[in-house]
């Protein structure tokens, strides 16, 4: 599917470009907005990305995932624009990504005591920008760890470790809650 669309694009079929835009633009915008609050900058970057994709179509390499390719390219573009000059286009060590995690969701809201919710809130706020980004890519962008590693410019194992640390922090924050659940289970069984 991706292969077919990609070779149509390389062959200069405008419909392929339109299809790729329709499939990925919304996810790309949402991802891009996590790097900058300047929505004009993000939208301009997305626009430029597709114009360049079309202009350079003949020189495009192969890709196993169009989505991954676009995420990589948009991420670079926005980071370059945010860091201002073309010379220092490197992302700061701690990352730029910032998402708003929401714990007011039904399940957690109803079943959880205020104290435990506070713990979870703290854990989510304590995630580093890189940890936030990897959770977002894993749980919100329909990408696998191989693709995520490439997007975040990590090797596969580092990406797995980064995600593991983030999830571990959430698990630990919820430990109290789990103990309560196990106790209930034990009461029921015995």
């Amino acid at each position: 599917m991706d292969n077919h669309l990609w070779s149509d694009l390389k062959a200069g079929k405008k419909a392929a470009l339109e299809r790729i835009y329709a499939d990925h633009a919304s996810a790309l915008l949402k991802y891009g907005r996590k790097f900058s609050a300047d929505s004009q900058l993000v939208e301009d970057s997305l626009q430029d990305l597709f114009i360049e994709l079309w202009k350079n179509r003949e020189g495009l390499g192969n890709t196993d995932s169009i989505r991954k390719y676009l995420f990589v390219a948009l991420r670079r573009k926005i980071i370059r624009a945010v860091s201002g000059s073309r010379m220092s286009s490197k992302e700061p060590e701690e990352g730029l990504f910032s998402a708003e995690f929401d714990i007011e969701q039904e399940i957690i809201g109803k079943e959880t005591e205020a104290e435990q919710r506070l713990q979870l809130q703290k854990a989510l706020e304590g995630l580093t920008k890189r940890q936030q980004e990897i959770l977002y890519l894993k749980y919100y962008s329909d990408l696998d760890y191989n693709q995520i590693a490439e997007i975040m410019d990590l090797n596969y194992q580092s990406a797995r470790n980064l995600a593991f640390r983030a999830l571990e922090a959430l698990r630990d924050a919820m430990l109290l809650l789990i103990i309560g659940f196990l106790w209930m289970l034990w009461v029921k069984l015995s």
Binding site: R33, R171, L177
Partner: peptide, 14 residues
């Protein structure tokens, strides 16, 4: 299950 549910990102659809 609870870990997965805890990961809720608030974001607007474009």
């Amino acid at each position: 299950r609870r870990i997965v549910l805890a990961i809720q990102v608030r974001e607007a659809e474009p």
